[in-house]
Amino acid sequence: MKKSKLLLGMAALAVTGVVLVAADHLDAPSSGGTTADIADFFAFEPETGSANTTFVVDLQSNVLPDLAYGTFDEDILTEINIDTDGDLVEDLVIQAIPRDGRMYFFYGEAADLGLNSQVLVNAPLGDVAISAETATVETTDSGARIFAGPRQDPFFFDFFQFNAVINPDPESAPLGFLPPSEAENTFAGANTMSIVVEMPNAMLGTTTALNAFNIPVYNTWVTTNRKQ
């Protein structure tokens, strides 16, 4: 199984700090709610004028604070695909795969394997301990910064009241949604298992892809791949 979300048009030499987001938190039955479920994909400059680009992949949008934060699946390979010539075929790929409490990252030219993938074992980027309560960030020899672990998603959602409102029984929530002062953020403290890579733009190289405004862009999207 290979699942993807598409995020197009991240400026290679962006002049604003705008975050481009692809998110839905509801996926097809074959992947929704599984460890291969892609909840969000963010790609942005960490600050205006930065020479780096940050990629954030959120997996498993049902991670609750009282469930020991959740874990990454060692059978799932996550790939951040990067197209630099505008043909919407990946030219570069960042890979992340967990093993024994650490997330291992690989980076290099993408192989044309169709719907399949293989780990770029000869092109390691670095590895980091998978965080729990305390965030751990490593800086690789190439200057990339990497992270893997639970993160709180940037939205407020009273999940249980929402379920009560949509319940067919009109007595389930006769007053509807709660006012802000009474609502509870069900996922406060956790929500997704996140993979974060901040890379120097020099590692990504130049791009000939252009958006509708003729601004050079990287076309980038995420796939998850389950070991067969």
Results as ranks from 00 to 15, higher is better:
residue 149 G to M: 02
residue 57 V to T: 08
residue 62 N to Y: 12
residue 218 Y to L: 12
residue 183 A to C: 01
residue 122 N to A: 11
residue 125 L to Q: 06
residue 62 N to E: 10
residue 73 D to N: 15
residue 139 T to I: 05
residue 195 I to T: 07
residue 169 D to R: 06
residue 36 A to G: 15
residue 87 D to L: 07
residue 227 K to H: 06
residue 70 G to H: 07
residue 21 V to K: 12
residue 179 P to G: 08
residue 31 S to G: 14
residue 142 S to C: 12
residue 205 G to L: 05
residue 90 E to L: 02
residue 137 V to K: 03
residue 94 I to K: 00
residue 74 E to T: 12
residue 214 N to A: 14
residue 54 T to L: 11
residue 213 F to L: 14
residue 110 A to I: 08
residue 147 F to C: 03
residue 148 A to T: 13
residue 142 S to Y: 14
residue 95 Q to N: 11
residue 43 A to E: 02
residue 83 D to C: 14
residue 176 G to E: 07
residue 158 D to S: 12
residue 200 P to C: 00
residue 169 D to E: 08
residue 127 D to F: 11
residue 206 T to W: 00
residue 123 A to S: 08
residue 159 F to A: 11
residue 197 V to R: 01
residue 132 A to Y: 05
residue 204 L to Q: 01
residue 5 K to Q: 14
residue 147 F to D: 05
residue 57 V to Q: 09
residue 84 T to G: 02
residue 23 A to F: 05
residue 114 G to P: 03
residue 166 I to E: 01
residue 94 I to L: 15
residue 126 G to K: 13
residue 26 L to H: 14
residue 127 D to P: 08
residue 4 S to V: 09
residue 109 E to D: 09
residue 20 L to I: 01
residue 115 L to N: 15
residue 228 Q to I: 10
residue 155 F to H: 05
residue 110 A to W: 08
residue 103 M to N: 00
residue 155 F to G: 01
residue 111 A to C: 04
residue 86 G to W: 11
residue 17 G to E: 11
residue 190 A to I: 06
residue 195 I to G: 04
residue 3 K to E: 12
residue 15 V to C: 11
residue 221 W to M: 05
residue 219 N to F: 01
residue 8 L to C: 05
residue 111 A to K: 12
residue 45 E to G: 07
residue 99 R to K: 13
residue 55 F to L: 15
residue 197 V to A: 05
residue 118 Q to W: 06
residue 147 F to L: 02
residue 52 N to A: 12
residue 160 F to A: 10
residue 90 E to Q: 15
residue 17 G to H: 10
residue 55 F to V: 01
residue 140 T to N: 08
residue 154 P to N: 08
residue 58 D to S: 14
residue 30 S to W: 15
residue 81 N to L: 10
residue 88 L to K: 13
residue 109 E to K: 09
residue 202 A to N: 02
residue 26 L to R: 12
residue 167 N to K: 08
residue 200 P to L: 02
residue 171 E to T: 15
residue 17 G to Q: 09
residue 78 T to R: 10
residue 203 M to E: 12
residue 71 T to G: 00
residue 44 F to L: 11
residue 212 A to L: 12
